[in-house]
Design a protein around this nucleic acid. Structure first.
Lengths: 202, 202
DNA sequence: TTTTATTGATTGATCGTTCAATAAAAGGAC
DNA sequence: GTCCTTTTATTGAACGATCAATCAATAAAA
């Protein structure tokens, strides 16, 4: 039964199964046996690849962060305009792969775990800092520091908020709505500048 | 050892212990024995009062929702101005009792449970609807329906977002910052109207 | 034949739940 | 007020089920 040289695919399918199993059974009731069955492997294999249940969860959290980073990198290439780049960040957070209730459930489960797992807390802090600093950089190209910071924090909060709300719904329920509403907010943030420029000119 | 007529206090202290235990140990590792010890009672008592672990968690979720509703009712009495009432809703969500990482962890744990527990999902949906409809009502007194709806959804998302971010921090870290930023957004939403009025007049 | 990947039965520990025992309060008799 | 009985609240040891983790056996690939 050994499939040689397919370790990476095995890892991915076990992590995918972990995310789905957390969503279906809840974080308190998920078992290694359920995860293994969902991934179509024996109970021993997750342990072989990840060492322990904790190890598997740590790898899953790291994978969630990694997938989001990949999504952003895929989308950012051709864009230069700050506002376009901010909307690209919004869209990356709301893309099909990220906006699934199962994926959101897993993220939220790790938010709870963060207080008792240093590894998890570290990774979630990286997510928060990265989103803020990306937004801050783009806003900072147009707005003065104080306004850029406000806009970045507000935008990050609105992204996280819609994304939390989506946890309770079916796939894609809020997606386009959320994108539009965050878009309106981003417009408003940039519009501040235009008023300011008009005042300076006038 | 019996303390007669103190059932309600016992219930409350067990629920409080549940919230703290979830935060300290994570939802996957929390045990009835830990909860009991933290509440200062024997392992049998939580079962006596709540029937089962599931029953205790359901009661805890209901209590979280109840406490938030109480907080809002306490603050809403004297205010009539829509903008003041919206800021009261914001402040109620960010008040000391609600903005604690332990309380947030518990809410988030239940967001994950919602997919496998109909009771929990029902209660969380009530929270979402109630917040939106409260905001919608106040915005609706000043803005046209379309704008009011946008403002309500955006404000709810921003509240939820800051509140999610607070999960990773110490008590009160973001509180005043978050309140100010949501306040700025609420101001902007109302300012739309003023522009509109000026355009109509001019 | 050797190496590598995978299996799944087994084990030891943990945890939810039960329930008979116990201890405080309340009620009643004198 | 004191003694006894009944009621109510609480305890914690014991049980059974579940589950993470292990590892010897196995089967494909090299």
């Amino acid at each position: 039964m050994p499939r040689v040289g397919q370790e990476e695919e095995r890892r991915k399918s076990i992590i995918k199964a972990t995310i789905e199993a957390i969503h279906e059974n809840g974080f308190a009731k998920v078992t290694m046996a359920q995860i293994a069955r969902k991934a179509g492997v024996s109970t021993g294999l997750p342990h072989h690849y990840f060492g322990s249940k904790t190890g598997l969860f740590d790898a899953t959290m790291a994978s969630l962060l990694h997938e989001l980073a990949i999504e952003i990198r895929r989308n950012c290439s051709q864009l230069h305009n700050p506002q376009e780049r901010i909307m690209m960040l919004v869209r990356s957070n709301f893309c099909e792969a990220q906006f699934k209730p199962a994926v959101i459930s897993a993220w939220l489960a790790f938010y709870v775990e963060a207080n008792s797992s240093a590894t998890t807390k570290r990774l979630l802090r990286i997510y928060q800092r990265r989103l803020r600093s990306n937004l801050m950089y783009e806003y900072g190209r147009v707005l003065v520091h104080r306004d850029a910071e406000k806009a970045a924090l507000g935008t990050a909060a609105m992204i996280d908020g819609f994304w939390l709300q989506q946890a309770l719904h079916k796939d894609k329920t809020l997606e386009s709505r959320a994108e539009t509403l965050v878009g309106d907010y981003v417009d408003q943030c940039f519009a501040q500048l235009q008023h300011l420029q008009q005042e300076v000119k006038g």
